[in-house]
Computed example of a mutant assay.
Amino acid sequence: MKKTFLPLLLALSIISCKNSESDNSDAEMTSETTEVASSEQKDGIGNTIAMANGLDKFKDATEVEFTFNVKVNDTVRSSRHWKWNTKTSEISLTEGDITQSYTKTDSIPEDKVSIDQKFINDSYWLLFPYQLVWSDAKLTEEKEVAAPISGDTLTKLEVAYNTDGGYTPGDTYDIYYGDDHMIEEWVYKAAGGDRQMATTWEDYEEFMGIPIAKMHKSEDGNFQLYFTDIVIK
């Protein structure tokens, strides 16, 4: 799959205030940091997390359908329904009563770029663990770190993308997971460090044996990004 980057700015633009990662500088714990070489990521921790999240089962999926929703202060700000044929790369987006379709290729027509940006954003939220194998990133693992929202002691994996290529180059994602390699929280950091947002990964449900986190919340709960109408077959 072509290297792509998650434009979480699409979600951030919905929120008027900047969310920041909790300050855990006073936490008394020892940590061990290990940088994972790019050449090792597909066979190392990246692959381990992706497989724990059903990558081997996803290879058999032919169709993925879901609705991406964003709610801020109890008001739904965005709702997009997607149908994705994983074999033909045909994708359709329905917003309100308007449906648009395109085929995802290495060259996206100019009039379809905005749809493709939305699809990358929404599908990354849905299936981010697979991007640890599908896309190129520098991975740095740190043991026994306090998670930004819960404060639980988890393993942190920094996922840093190059500063060229994709829609939002230079973005970084800190994911926090336990011994089962399921993401519990993450922090998105925009290139340049001027924007960041921490949310949970929760309400997991399996579809065709593939675990999906259906809910993502900010620490105060005022921001909720969640999935409905999920079908994988």
Rank of each mutant, 00 (worst) to 15 (best):
K2S: 01
K3H: 13
L8D: 14
L12S: 12
N24Y: 03
D26S: 02
M29W: 12
S38P: 06
E40F: 11
E40S: 13
A50G: 05
A52Q: 12
G54C: 00
L55I: 10
K57H: 10
K59A: 09
D60S: 09
A61E: 11
D74C: 01
D74R: 13
D74K: 15
V76N: 12
R77F: 06
S78W: 06
T88I: 02
I91V: 15
E95I: 13
G96T: 10
Y102F: 10
T105G: 00
D106T: 08
D106R: 09
K112M: 05
K118L: 12
N121S: 07
L127E: 10
S135T: 14
D136V: 08
A137P: 07
K138F: 05
E141Q: 15
E142D: 06
E144A: 11
V145P: 10
P148S: 01
I149E: 01
T153C: 05
K156T: 09
Y161P: 04
N162F: 05
G165Q: 07
T168F: 05
Y173M: 03
D174W: 12
D174Q: 07
D174T: 02
Y176M: 00
Y177H: 10
H181A: 04
E184V: 02
A190C: 05
D203N: 06
Y204M: 01
E205F: 01
F207Y: 15
I210N: 03
I212G: 04
A213Q: 03
M215G: 01
M215T: 03
D220Q: 14
Q224S: 04
Y226N: 02
D229M: 00
